[in-house]
Design a protein around this nucleic acid. Structure first.
Lengths: 252, 252
DNA sequence: CAATTCAAACACAGAAGATGTTCATTAGAT
DNA sequence: ATCTAATGAACATCTTCTGTGTTTGAATTG
């Protein structure tokens, strides 16, 4: 059991029990208590839990978004395929708006070596794109959400209002015909809306697990999306319903 | 001779001769030709040189700014001391504007664990601050200069106009009473000016090597600076002249 | 005050990176 | 067109880093 598996186990335990103990985790994982403590300290640094004597308590209230480092490990294959498909939707020279999130981060990796103009809505996405050194980077301003590194607030909206894009690539937390497109953070919601206003075409990149979920913040009805790229695990009836709303659905 | 020394040697040769050969470098450094080639490829990736058969030619025209990776190794001790002193000038809870550059990057490392509000004018500085997770990060928008990762252009100016700061911590490329504060890139110059307009107090962080230099872009007269933090190698007459212009000079 | 937990320090193993060597391929010179 | 030197890929070796466990003394809690 390597460090990644251990972390996943700890997070799973925290979700079920709300708290964990060092001794119990050491037995379960088969590693020393010192190693468990180091794992817990690491997760504490990500804001996942709070250390207490003998163990840790969860900082993940139900109904709230799991932290970045956790989400990045969810459905990585699907996200990679989706990112690849989104990359093919973007032509060279286009101006692209790239949302924050783990799926769009993967899209950024796909676009990093392309010759396009990109405005990322996340510091992490910006990092990936600047490493590529070929894309023209137009940074959005805004307040940086700690942990997420997404950009929100009036400065971010002002940045979006100042530019027009060929394509906006958005992520989301939940998606259904009944409930529309939803996200956890209300600040992010406002930005997604502004992003849609600034782009001629809106592409939503969402793996199939999102189709079953509804988050607190309402972004827009499904029909406002132009293209949805998801994976082949998406249930047929959901895909049919979303298509019926006028969305081009692509399953990869 | 480790890889850092080799790179420095290669850059020095490029500055003197304008070009280098693989064979000669292999002899001088005492390493294999393959290693030299890998070094050259690495520097080519940073935009320092262009590979040609048998060697490489410089991409560093005189009068232009050396690339980031090179500057970061210049006077690192002085920069650290300066950064520490600048950190002491910043009180908790303040709103701080942080310029791009290698000296201000060091300042960012100093401020990363503080509880302040910071607007960085560089992606790299933003990266450092977001790692700290204590500072409130207000990202400036703007076009990202490739290689430098500094933010320039109208979006950046708009971000600066939208906020007011207690302190602006600026870097520069050249500084003298006769020629004022100067920088290489004209885009950066405009941003530095806007930054000064948005801050009650302007702190310039510049190691003593900057006192002898003049760059192309004129930012402002020396007297517009409130505090200059430099190192103890600064010549006394220069310090006296700058003080006479009404600047509080601190040598560390 | 006693029992437990913790964190710093050191030791060790496996992983990752850097370097050198060999060799087939390629670019440039003749 | 042919030859020579340069190149980059592939592999082997060595070094450095990172992750882990153990020990030990300090800190916390009941």
């Amino acid at each position: 059991m390597d460090s990644v598996e251990r972390m996943d186990l700890i997070v799973a335990r925290l979700r079920e029990e709300g708290e964990v103990t060092v001794v119990e985790l050491a037995e379960t994982t088969g590693h020393s208590e010192m190693t468990v403590r180091r794992d817990l300290d690491h997760l504490a640094g990500q804001g996942v839990l709070r250390r207490v004597r003998g163990g840790a308590v969860s900082l993940l209230p139900r109904g709230q978004e799991p932290p970045y480092a956790i989400r990045e490990r969810q459905a990585p294959d699907a996200k990679r395929r989706i990112a690849e498909a989104v990359g093919e939707l973007i032509g060279d020279g286009q101006a692209v708006l790239l949302d924050s999130g783990t799926t769009t981060l993967q899209v950024a990796r796909e676009l990093a070596e392309r010759h396009i103009t990109v405005m990322p809505l996340s510091l992490q996405v910006a990092q990936v794109l600047s490493d590529g050194r070929t894309a023209r980077l137009l940074m959005a301003g805004g307040e940086v959400r700690v942990g997420e590194l997404s950009l929100i607030g009036p400065l971010a909206e002002a940045s979006l209002n100042a530019v027009r894009f060929d394509t906006a690539v958005l992520g989301c937390c939940g998606l259904s015909v009944a409930e529309g497109v939803t996200a956890y953070d209300l600040g992010d919601v406002a930005i997604k809306r502004a992003a849609m206003r600034s782009a001629r075409r809106v592409v939503l990149a969402a793996d199939s697990t999102k189709l079953a979920q509804v988050a607190m913040g309402y972004v827009c009805p499904v029909g406002d999306i132009d293209v949805l790229v998801t994976d082949t695990d998406a249930p047929d009836e959901a895909v049919a319903a979303i298509s019926a709303a006028g969305v081009v659905v692509q399953c990869v």
